[in-house]
Amino acid sequence: MSIKDKIIVIIAEQGLLDVTDVKLEATLDDLGIDSLGVVESIFAIEEEFDIEVPFNANAPEKSDFDISSVGSIVVAVEKLVAEQI
């Protein structure tokens, strides 16, 4: 499974959605994921890829990790995974 597909599975699980309903352009808010869901999703991503995600819930927009859409999360995780190798 690609990084993108794995992230979609994580987000679908968090939003209680079918993976086919998780589009790359969607925001987490669109998918009904609130602030707690965001923190849980990031935890699941860290566990799945064994990475540290720089994310502060106080100022998500100022974090180095872009969570503005599913697609931006995929890009950010791909970058973190690449940096790790």
Binding site: V39, I42, F43, F55, N56, A57, N58, A59
Partner: peptide
């Protein structure tokens, strides 16, 4: 730590550059 609301630098209540 898990909640991601903790600051790694200082507690800055009411300051626009607060970090938790």
């Amino acid at each position: 730590e898990g909640l991601r609301v903790m600051s790694k630098s200082a507690c800055r209540p009411f300051s626009a550059n607060r970090s938790g």
